[in-house]
Design a protein around this nucleic acid. Structure first.
Lengths: 216, 216, 216, 216
DNA sequence: TATGAATGAGAATTCATTCAT
DNA sequence: TATGAATGAATTCTCATTCAT
């Protein structure tokens, strides 16, 4: 009946969903899943309670949507960072940087204040332990990055740059180091100097710490 | 009235506290902090609700006490493992093993079933992000193990076994790898082979993965 | 602008109202008044929510209109059945049959499936207990049929076919038997064989069950 | 630990349950199931909301308990009325009277006012149509009384007092008449004179209304 | 007329904590 | 000390109705 009615409706719907997800992001970053009440999201979003339930059928569904959103952002950022990077180290750093950028970005709340959203990662993780649905998403994302990293290492081994090594376990440990740094950073941000830590991680990864290399 | 001596009262008190903490351990391992209700702990402990509040003034206090308990157990286990270990690698493995043993042990519930308590770590961590009091304890424990590890590395550097390296950052990254493996293990236990991962971690840590060591 | 004549507008209005009432009939038959949500009627009618409120000012008003509708259908059916019936028993059966036919008919839902509407009777009744407005309509309908039945009995008494009897109370009891059968039928449809029950009702009504009639 | 502790607790529990059921009775009689809010029962009972949920796990469960209660009262009353009654008519009247007494009794609300509880029957019935669990109870109660009535009629037929008749259908119709009168009485209490209606029902049941009995 | 997104006043239920016994 | 019944504020979710377009 109206021009572009369908498109317009879609974009409006998308906008409202984002409005809610933005508000939820801020709330979750501030108080975590359990301490965030629907009323908090209502207040932060500027919408009414009924409207929230019009777009998401439960609190949990907002959370799940948020975790999808987060993963998408992470993927996009990593993809962007990989653009033009060719060497192994460059590419691994691109991934690491994408992770850190996403994890350490900020959102803007209703009053225009910047809110550090690093805590979101912790919330997703925690819920992944609890909730099978979120866990499944998490695992999927993990597999994706694991594959990406393993391919890089495989290429390095094939090219003779790296020696023979148990690639899956190596990748597991490297990713664990990143995850662990993320958690540590949530607890004591002042003690985690990301760029420095990543530099050292790669440097030690390549060369080890032994004084006399295993040449003799 | 001599049976009511102070010692007896203390030991009785201690016993009751442990009874409650054991019950809470089982509940938390099963359902996590938020999904564990005081009634669950009451049922698991076999005590009455009033009695719980006689020994702990809130749900949170039980949790805090539990995290202390956990840290103590961890410390004791690591200490025991270090007994007689002298070389750097032996001592680092002793620490790592103590961590894994504690994190992956089981508790026995009221019906005599073994309950895997690995989830407790996640709960403590999560609450550490949320709650300053728990965070403080966490940080303290971290400092302790950081110090222990750094001293080991320092000695290795001093003895010429290790080359010069940024010790705090190295220790940060190593601990992060452990923490990350713990989280990963909570999500996909079948993908984390602890002994294998620790072996590779130490091996790569020492030697790096570069094919031609930086000797020429 | 002549197509917008008053008649056409009226018929359009009538059509829309019927569309809504048909949808409401199906919903009420399926879920009852309280469990039927306006959204259900919206979905079933294929109209929008705003439009419903354009034709009926509330959920209750739809219900009231439906009960009117139902009564009209019942009346029409009974009137049709009475056509050409002259004897007392024939006419009483005509009424009974009209009642059973209406109560046990089906409606067709949006997907073309037949929906048994017997539950509507229960809903009207229930709401008649609750709501004075619906009760008033109910009582009016009752009076109409009571009058009709009483006139038949009166004629039978006058003609000597029936003995002297308390006509209002007799009619009350006979109608009660029908109403009771309707409720019973809603609960245990398999136990209510309407034609058989009506036959027996009339037979016993006429002759009683006493073995030796009060002739001696 | 205390004398009679178990008994005391049981009687206390029973008392509280009754307190809640009494309050619910009054509320249901006044407003019906759907319009009765938990807050209404809270206010009427003088207890707190939490306490209600301590004794009943949901609103529906209160309702189910109430319907059990009601059936028990009905049974008890009928049993008491049957005491010493031997003839068929006496026994059927005893049943009918028990039904009417129970259905038309009053409860006393928190302010000491008498509340007519006749509406409860309608509520149970309505919910029996909706809810399988309540329906099952209803059907069971029906079977019980049907059996009792059928046995009476069977005996009357055996003794030659009644002629051969389709006993189940007769009983169905007689019970339907009672149920129908109950509903009618809810709608227009002033038009239902129970004793009179029952007298006529039995009189017509025995003798029929035909002027010249089917003797010649 | 027709639409359907938005609303917000309720509703049922939960659960940590208290307190009389 | 020990108990466990009682509490009520807080929480999630619902849904009849409105109203700008």
């Amino acid at each position: 009946m109206h021009p572009d009615s369908k498109d317009e409706r879609n974009s409006k719907t998308e906008e409202r969903r984002n409005q809610i997800l933005d508000a939820a992001t801020v709330c979750l970053a501030r108080k975590g899943y359990y301490e965030t009440k629907m009323d908090d999201i209502v207040a932060e979003s500027g919408l009414s309670k009924g409207t929230l339930y019009l777009y998401f059928k439960s609190k949990k569904e907002i959370f799940v949507a948020l975790s999808e959103c987060f993963t998408e952002t992470l993927n996009a950022r990593i993809e962007a960072n990989l653009e033009g990077k060719t060497t192994l180290i460059e590419r691994m750093r691109a991934m690491a940087d994408g992770y850190v950028q996403t994890t350490s970005s900020t959102a803007t709340d209703a009053s225009g204040n910047a809110v550090n959203i690093s805590r979101l990662t912790a919330e997703f993780w925690q819920q992944a332990v609890v909730d099978p649905e979120i866990r499944a998403r998490f695992i999927e994302a993990y597999r994706f990055y694991t594959k990406m990293g393993e391919d890089l290492i495989k290429a390095a081994v094939a090219s003779g740059e790296f020696r023979e090594v148990d690639i899956p376990t190596l990748m597991l440990v490297v990713m664990a180091a990143f995850d662990g740094l993320t958690w540590r950073w949530l607890l004591t941000p002042e003690e985690v100097d990301w760029p420095h830590a990543i530099d050292l991680l790669f440097e030690v990864l390549l060369n080890g710490v032994r004084a006399i290399p295993n040449s003799g």
